[in-house]
Write a protein that binds this DNA or RNA. Structure first.
Lengths: 335, 335
DNA sequence: CTGAAAGCGCTAACAG
DNA sequence: CTGTTAGCGCTTTCAG
């Protein structure tokens, strides 16, 4: 059996209360007995049980992290930075892949509560506003990353998606493009709608009319993007540039364009979003709008853990600014 | 406050023992009282505390998952399949990024034990054999994925790395290549050494002598691979083909080669390993040795959970076979 | 400074 | 069938 607090108390000739105090550095214990207890703990390799201490009302030092899919590089990089920061601060993180499915989401949330996690981070793709609301009502610390729910008072770290879209399109326009497509995902969340708004705004400022045919909605999949792009090249006045919802879709579009015989960037300029590893290793390297993933993960973890330690901290919404990374998939149109 | 078992007992007019029995479906309870209790649980939104039940010796339904870096697509895809299967079977998974650092590894292991996880999966890159040994001695269920420690009796799921290396090189030789480089990582684990052995064996069978200069050891980084490749192209008799330890390194090599003015695959054939998303989206699509990542993740999770449920199950080492996926980065040498 | 004792929410005999 | 009760390992008053 694993040694318990009783074992060390007995072996050290003190009471369990004393042992508890030296473990937690509370109360006043003489140096002498403190040393003795510490020594015994070493000897019998005693490890306090988090389960038992949690039952008395202390923290579990565990947080939940919900994202649609950890196999998606954007989410994986986010997970890495959240876990890193959590680890630094003494917290474990439970990974939950929701597939953006509200039912799965609700189930994870229930499990996490039953396991008494100290708090929960909801990543982009959170669908189930209702369950988040419940979380907040039950005073479970929660924070959002890369997404926002304007109607709720909750810590959130996100980027200015409007600006991201605006930057991408402004860049393309400055290169001389006028016919620019937008390859979106489902278009059913604020994030995407904001980027679309940025897209439209940039067009408008340049006096270019929005063309409904240039707005492609697909299913967040590589193959969809490829197919969409191919179709687009066959349309009458094909765009000379495309802005994709993320790097994966951008690369899908590039593949589709290449299959149709187009050269990148000469025949088609492409801008991605996120600046994941995919953008860096693409050939040619992908021009993209960078989200500061590391900072976002770190910041949201800090906010959540602050809230866990003191529930009266004032909530905040931290908006980081995206940055245009010009690489080699954009150039003036050659037409 | 969250409702407890006492709250439902009181409201339903029964004892907590009865409530406990309906929760766990143990003992014999009349349909009538069962329904009544269930109804009350619904009404007050009662959720049994995993912490409390764990304290009485029951499972926490949580497992730990150690890998070097979830931001690495290979690990991320593995994590996804482990978490998926865990979720199906009712287990949460705690993600731990070790950076292959033995101290971090040991610390995670300690935390996980203090949190009473039911079992632990160790991914490739596990460095600290000693702490794994301790785990086993303490009868904590553990299982290995994509790695093996021959001296320990522990469930493991891995691929035949020797065969993988052999397949890659045989493919290249069959295309007519004779001068083939191997871009390795650190070369300090069985996995890599096995692949190297496969490489050598294939060469030997073809009557090609092993050339020490064709073995490049780097640091698992994209840039290292790129640099290595560039150097290689400047050497006297540059290889006409290269086999890399994983897809990322293979793509790094491709970038290096392209910078040196080589065309892929005409001037240089490249074979990767893992068949991650990187291989599929590379341009040209990367020929690679596929690991059945989904199956591995699922299988190792099954083995671990079986062991959790019954510690007397016989341990096994499941060796899956890698598969050569020929795409477009390999062709006969044009020299 | 140190220890006795109550209690956290739940499970598992054991009685009835 | 249902309830009483003794823990699980730890924290926290409250006395001494």
């Amino acid at each position: 059996m694993k040694p318990t607090i009783y074992d060390v108390a007995e072996k050290a000739g003190v009471s369990i209360a004393t042992v508890s105090k030296v473990i937690n550095n509370t109360g006043k214990i003489s140096d002498k007995t403190k040393r003795k207890v510490l020594k015994v703990m070493e000897e019998i390799k005693y490890q306090p049980s988090v389960v038992a201490s949690a039952l008395t009302g202390k923290k579990t030092n565990t947080i939940g992290f919900l994202i649609p899919d950890i196999a998606n590089p954007f989410h994986a990089e986010m997970a890495r930075s959240v876990e890193d920061r959590g680890h630094e601060l003494g917290f474990s993180v439970v990974m939950c892949n929701t597939d953006s499915n509200p039912e799965k989401e609700a189930q994870y949330l229930e499990w996490l509560q039953r396991k008494s996690v100290d708090g929960i981070i909801l990543g982009s793709g959170t669908q189930n506003d209702a369950s988040l609301k419940e979380l907040i009502e039950q005073k479970i610390p929660a924070a959002l990353i890369a997404t926002d729910i304007p109607s709720l008072s909750v810590n959130a770290v996100l980027i200015d998606d409007f600006l991201g879209g605006y930057q991408a399109i402004t860049h393309l326009i400055s290169l001389g493009h006028k016919n620019i497509a937008f390859i979106a995902g489902s278009l059913n969340n604020v994030m995407e709608r904001e980027r679309l708004r940025g897209y439209k705004q940039a067009l408008e400022e340049a006096g270019i009319e929005f063309n409904r045919h240039n707005l492609l909605v697909n299913n967040f999949s590589f193959d969809d993007a490829k197919r969409s792009m191919k179709m687009l090249t066959e349309s009458g006045e094909r765009p000379t540039a495309v802005f994709a919802f993320n790097d994966l879709l951008a690369i899908g579009a590039i593949h589709g364009a290449k299959e149709a015989g187009l050269k990148i960037p000469d025949d088609l300029s492409v801008v991605g979003f996120d600046n994941t590893i995919l953008a860096a290793i693409n050939d040619p390297p992908l021009t993209t709008i960078a989200q500061p993933i590391q900072d976002m993960g770190r910041k949201v973890t800090d906010l959540l853990i602050e809230q866990i330690k003191d529930d009266h901290t004032v909530k905040q919404r931290v908006v980081l600014l995206p940055e245009l990374i010009v690489r080699q998939t954009t150039s003036p149109p050659k037409i």
